[in-house]
Amino acid sequence: MYAQMVKSEATQDDPEKLAAFQARIDAGEKIEPKEWMPEGYRKTLIRQIGQHAHSEIVGQLPEGNWITRAPSLERKAILLAKVQDEAGHGLYLYCAAETLGVSRDELTEALLAGKMKYSSIFNYPTLTWADIGAVGWLVDGAAIMNQVPLQRTSFGPYSRAMIRICKEESFHQRQGFDIMRKMATGTKAQRHMAQDALNRFWYPSLMMFGPSDADSVHSAQSIRWKIKMNTNDELRQKFVDQTVPQAEYLGLTVPDPDLRWNADKGGYDFSEPDWDEFFEVLKGNGPCNTERLAARQKAWDDGAWVRDGLMAHAAKQHSAPVAAE
């Protein structure tokens, strides 16, 4: 998922107000921006939505890496449209965060200063065309696991952004699977690329859900506030159960010798990813952390004169009245 390890903020509000707030959430009401909310709720949401938005934007880069090398005109168009959607999703999410009193520029600067995170998954490289398939199939698949329940989150603007995103995103995982299927049933070299992509993206995809949070106080608070809908382990299990049969269909081998169907629990037993690696990636030591942030920094710096120039022009003009149709 795109928001990992979001710490919930402690809240020191009036207990009566807090109880009334919780009652509204329990009753399934949506919280809207101008309404009273605990400071901790607001801050946690800014961090979570901001991280989610950053993930969409940084997430453009590993896939964008192959737009200029897509193997056919149609694949090029599909991939470009898909990565364009990620930009749109980032935009919707930044707007949702902005209703909480933080600006998009502030969030961007926090990302570039390393004060805010994005999903660990985007620090892994896309080395072959099959990786573009794997990203769509596994990474978008994992993201969807998280995003579908988030459509019911308690914060109105976040929920509405997620509804729009889920609607648009429905083609993303399919396009990834479609690429994988072509590769897995293609030439020897293509089959090799497909298996190699699965080998490299399997564990990083499992990491997307974050370490087990069954005992986490932060997660419990976020779940009570309905800004987190499931535990990390629940979502990870669901992802494995859904993905393994798909890999079998493709004739690919999930790189986990201990993967077994467990009839008692009605799901697969599987190996944990290397959590030391995960924490190193979060600290900035993943294969592509430096390149990803440098690319965002360059876009931000190089674009400054455009943003300023357009503002300067607008300031010179009289704001034209806009008539309703």
Binding site: Q60, I67, A81, V83, Q84, A295, A299, R307
Partner: peptide, 25 residues
Amino acid sequence: SEWCGQAPVLEEDIALANVALDLIG
């Protein structure tokens, strides 16, 4: 399309992709 993910502002990133998609079509 080389601009994808690198534009000065998100709104322009999306606009540039629209132009590129038209041209590819």
